[in-house]
C-alpha cells in the first residue's frame, strides 16, 4: 500500500492491490471507503448488494481469502493483498456455478436482492468442514442472510442440493 497525492480534507487516498475474482487490480481508495463501496461504486461490480450497510442482512457478503465476510463492515484499505471473490467470480468459463444453477432450479428467490449474499454464504457453508450438513445446521449457519421475500425454504433446498458439487 502506498499513499498517493489525491486528497480529501487533507487526507490522502491509498493505493492497494487486490486479487479480485482471479484478476490483479490496483485501486486507489480513501480510508473510509468500505470494501462494499469499492466493489460497487468504483469497480462497478454491482452483483454484491447493499442492504442494511450495518452487517445485519448479509446482502453484501463476499469471500476474502476464502472466508465469507460482510463487506459493508470492512474498510477497503484493510484488504491490500487480499484475494476477494464476489458473485461475479462464481461462474467459470461461462458455466453457472452449481450453487447458481441450484438457486434457479429450486426457485430460491423472489426479488433476488439477497441472492448474491445468500450464494456467497452458501458456498462457504458447503466448503466448511466444521459446519454440519443437516438442514438445521445450514439454517443456523445462514441465519445472517436475511430474505425479505421469505424464500428460505427454497434457499435451503438449493444449498442442500448443491452439497457434494462444490
Amino acid at each position: 500500500m502506498s499513499e498517493t497525492s489525491t486528497a480529501a480534507g487533507g487526507i490522502s487516498a491509498c493505493s492497494i492491490t487486490l486479487q479480485l475474482n482471479g484478476q490483479r487490480r490496483e485501486v486507489e481508495v480513501y480510508p473510509w471507503t468500505t470494501l462494499l463501496d469499492l466493489l460497487r461504486e468504483q469497480l462497478h461490480l454491482t452483483g454484491t448488494k447493499k442492504g442494511c450497510d450495518h452487517g445485519q442482512c448479509g446482502a453484501c457478503n463476499v469471500h476474502v481469502n476464502g472466508t465469507v465476510i460482510n463487506s459493508c463492515l470492512s474498510l477497503a484499505v484493510m484488504h491490500d493483498g487480499d484475494e476477494i471473490t464476489t458473485v461475479e467470480g462464481l461462474s467459470e468459463n461461462g458455466e453457472l456455478h452449481p450453487i447458481q444453477q441450484a438457486f434457479l432450479d429450486e426457485d430460491a428467490y423472489q426479488c433476488g436482492y439477497c441472492t448474491a449474499g445468500q450464494m456467497m454464504t452458501a458456498t462457504y457453508v458447503l466448503n466448511s468442514s466444521h459446519i454440519g450438513d443437516s438442514d438445521d445446521a445450514v439454517r443456523e449457519a445462514m441465519s445472517g442472510n436475511i430474505c425479505r421475500c421469505g424464500a428460505y425454504k427454497n434457499i435451503l433446498a438449493a444449498v442442500q442440493s448443491t452439497r457434494g458439487k462444490v
Binding site: G55, L73, S74, L75, V77, M78
Partner: peptide, 26 residues
C-alpha cells in the same frame, strides 16, 4: 483501533463513534 471492524464501522456510520484516526491492527 480497528480489528474486525464489526462494531467500529457500524457505529462510525451512524456517527456514534467519531474517530479522527483509525489504527489498523490486522
Amino acid at each position: 483501533f480497528v480489528a474486525g471492524g464489526t462494531t467500529l464501522l457500524d457505529l462510525v456510520k451512524i456517527d456514534i463513534m467519531q474517530p479522527e484516526r483509525v489504527v489498523d491492527v490486522n
